[in-house]
Design a binder for these strands. Structure first.
Length: 203
DNA sequence: CCATGATCATTA
DNA sequence: TAATGATCATGG
């Protein structure tokens, strides 16, 4: 166990802005590529280490009271935009049905995050730099969060009436319930933040 | 084996 | 290029 405060994690990470993440991964002995296959989580794992956290796979938050997230950015028409959606947390169907939004793991992970932007230079390209580190606080009563809550409740109602397998990434304005799992037939799902949501919280 | 960290592949 | 579904390496 290695508890660290949000502010400590922030300042730890900021020391690495503009550093080459691939070089740092080597120093921390984090696997990036093996036989042309990428460890898709390497950037996230590395950032946890840079923040001073232990790598783990517990469902709870990473540190004291915050969540560390990273998103790859790339240029579209000379503008830096998020390349991918952002995974928030896994969905446990039973828990989901019985949990209001503001008590859900989904909300707890969203409300206090440390956001890391990393650069992306193409498929299978190991080069990546840490672009910026931001602290993001989402107020409960903001319009955005109220709309996220609506998405959550909509998806929850769909689960209740149509079943877990009816959930699809098409639903939700800001967040979605997409498939995510170990592959090979797994049908587990997770909450994802849409790209528009990522851009929204960055302003 | 599976949850977690996400990215990769495919289709439109 | 955007959106959605499928997949990968790791640690417990």
């Amino acid at each position: 166990m290695n508890l660290i405060t949000k502010q400590e994690a922030l300042s730890n990470l900021k020391r690495y802005i503009n550093e080459d993440l691939f070089e740092l991964a080597k120093q921390f002995n984090i696997t990036t590529f093996i036989d042309n296959k990428q460890n898709k989580g390497w950037k996230g794992l590395l950032l946890e280490r840079l923040a001073g956290l232990d790598n783990n796979s517990i469902k709870a938050t990473n540190g004291e009271d915050f969540e560390l997230k990273s998103v790859a950015f790339y240029y579209v028409k000379k503008k830096l935009v998020p390349k991918e959606t952002m995974a928030i947390t896994m969905i446990n169907p039973i828990e989901f049905i019985n949990t209001p939004f503001f008590e859900s793991p989904c909300w707890h992970k969203l409300k206090s995050i440390i956001f890391c932007a990393v650069s992306w230079h193409g498929m299978h390209v190991p080069k990546s730099h840490l672009l910026k580190v931001d602290e993001i606080i989402l107020p409960e009563d903001s319009k955005l969060i109220q709309e996220v809550k609506s998405d959550y409740e909509f998806i929850r109602n769909k689960l209740i009436s149509n079943g877990f397998s009816s959930l699809t990434g098409k639903d939700g304005k800001w967040i979605q319930a997409r498939t995510k799992g170990s592959g090979h037939g797994s049908i587990s799902r997770a909450f994802y933040a849409r790209k528009s949501f990522i851009e929204e919280i960055l302003n």
